[in-house]
Amino acid sequence: MFAHRRLWSAVAWLTRPRVAVLAGLAHVCLLTGCAGEYSTLDPAGPSALAVSWLWWGMLLAFGLVWFAVIGLWLLAVRRDPGDVSDAQAQRLQNRWIIGGGLVLPGVSIAVLLAFGIPVGHGMLPLSADEDVLRIEVTGYQWYWQVEYPDAGVSLEDELHIPAGEPVHIHLRSNDVIRSFWVPRLAGKLDAIPGHENVLKLQADQAGVYRGLCAEFCGLLHADMGFTVEAHEREDFEQWLSDAARDD
């Protein structure tokens, strides 16, 4: 059918240069961009990894939706509809609105939740893993106070954790609200005066990971960076006992 050929030519016209652009962008990203020290696209922990997969999936699916809608629009603006009776318009309306306005978002939401709810569940610090290491982090203007209550170790802007296992960060704030975030490991969580929040953090490999304050916290908000150093289990025990002795 003629209309079909037009549709395909429009789709081809739309996608040809753009696929190239996307592929190029992805290429650039993989070579240079994705590997930043704060990059959520270069995950190094289970939570960040799961979310990065969510992102790539959503990008693909929603990218298609986006191009399809723009393509439809361009086609609708260019084509000659001929004489459309009111009854035809009514049928078309119901088909499009029910399909595009109800079914499309409905299915998208269902799929999103099917993937998203288990991922979210996995990121929760459940009390079932009670024997995990507890680290207390308190926000000050403008630094993070880090305490290991069991070992009696106290640090500033510097965390040490064992690699390959979860730790619980207990977040508090001494003054204003801020947000504790190590992008390559896990999502962020706020430190709020009067409240305590618990964040589950895990690094798969030993290494140094950088973190920052994500919630605006005043004058030196940009300078509230910190590091998380993950050690192999034995090295971590060693570090902890050394640090406890020095204190």
Binding site: L113, I117, H121, L126
Partner: peptide, 11 residues
């Protein structure tokens, strides 16, 4: 209401 069957309430 669907999340009611998926999540524990208070964590």
């Amino acid at each position: 209401a669907i999340p009611v069957v998926a999540y524990p309430p208070c964590v």
